[in-house]
Computed example of a mutant assay.
Amino acid sequence: MQYEQTKKLSNREFKRLVGVQRRTFDEMVRIMRDTVKTKKTRGCPNKLDLEDQILICLQYWREYRTYFHIAQDWQVSESTVCRTVQRKRKCVG
């Protein structure tokens, strides 16, 4: 489920789906946006929005699904999911 679709969910449903409260998720996005602004980017732009990247990471960390299954749900390559999770892991800690 992409971020745009989660906007339709109630706060309770959002937490059930993602595992964190909506305001916690918004804070994560804000922190990641600040981090991304300070970095110089090269190469192709990301196929996924920052919100979607964070949703992918939360889905991986919460459900421990394989990169392959997550990639199928999001219609991206397995390596894209792997890179996304690895990059966010570095930022988180």
Results as ranks from 00 to 15, higher is better:
residue 34 D to L: 12
residue 53 Q to P: 02
residue 62 R to A: 08
residue 57 C to A: 15
residue 49 D to F: 11
residue 49 D to Q: 12
residue 40 K to F: 04
residue 63 E to L: 14
residue 41 T to N: 07
residue 33 R to T: 12
residue 25 F to C: 01
residue 40 K to G: 03
residue 61 W to Y: 11
residue 30 R to F: 12
residue 42 R to P: 04
residue 54 I to L: 13
residue 40 K to N: 06
residue 15 K to D: 08
residue 27 E to T: 09
residue 14 F to S: 07
residue 39 K to M: 14
residue 30 R to G: 08
residue 60 Y to E: 03
residue 26 D to W: 04
residue 24 T to F: 08
residue 64 Y to T: 09
residue 49 D to R: 15
residue 53 Q to K: 15
residue 37 K to T: 06
residue 59 Q to H: 09
residue 25 F to M: 03
residue 40 K to H: 07
residue 50 L to T: 01
residue 61 W to M: 14
residue 45 P to F: 08
residue 28 M to I: 13
residue 57 C to G: 09
residue 20 V to E: 01
residue 35 T to K: 15
residue 63 E to C: 09
residue 35 T to I: 10
residue 18 V to G: 00
residue 60 Y to Q: 04
residue 32 M to K: 02
residue 48 L to E: 05
residue 38 T to F: 09
residue 59 Q to A: 10
residue 56 I to L: 13
residue 22 R to Y: 05
residue 60 Y to N: 05
residue 47 K to S: 12
residue 56 I to R: 03
residue 16 R to L: 12
residue 45 P to D: 07
residue 52 D to G: 01
residue 58 L to V: 02
residue 56 I to G: 01
residue 50 L to P: 00
residue 62 R to T: 11
residue 53 Q to A: 04
residue 40 K to P: 01
residue 19 G to A: 06
residue 48 L to D: 02
residue 43 G to L: 05
residue 21 Q to G: 11
residue 31 I to Q: 14
residue 33 R to Y: 00
residue 58 L to F: 13
residue 25 F to Q: 03
residue 44 C to A: 12
residue 41 T to W: 08
residue 36 V to H: 00
residue 21 Q to W: 08
residue 32 M to F: 11
residue 45 P to H: 06
residue 25 F to R: 02
residue 30 R to V: 07
residue 27 E to M: 12
residue 31 I to H: 10
residue 44 C to V: 11
residue 61 W to I: 09
residue 54 I to V: 15
residue 24 T to K: 08
residue 50 L to M: 14
residue 46 N to S: 14
residue 28 M to L: 15
residue 23 R to D: 10
residue 48 L to R: 04
residue 14 F to K: 06
residue 39 K to F: 10
residue 52 D to Q: 05
residue 57 C to T: 15
residue 39 K to S: 07
residue 17 L to N: 11
residue 36 V to E: 02
residue 22 R to I: 07
residue 58 L to Y: 07
residue 40 K to Q: 10
residue 31 I to V: 15
residue 24 T to Q: 11
residue 48 L to C: 05
residue 42 R to F: 06
residue 15 K to P: 07
residue 63 E to F: 12
residue 17 L to K: 15
residue 47 K to Y: 09
residue 60 Y to R: 11
residue 17 L to E: 15
residue 30 R to S: 14
residue 18 V to Q: 01
residue 38 T to E: 13
residue 46 N to I: 02
residue 39 K to D: 03
residue 55 L to F: 01
residue 30 R to W: 07
residue 47 K to V: 15
residue 46 N to A: 13
residue 42 R to Q: 11
residue 61 W to S: 12
residue 27 E to G: 09
residue 31 I to T: 13
residue 37 K to A: 06
residue 43 G to R: 03
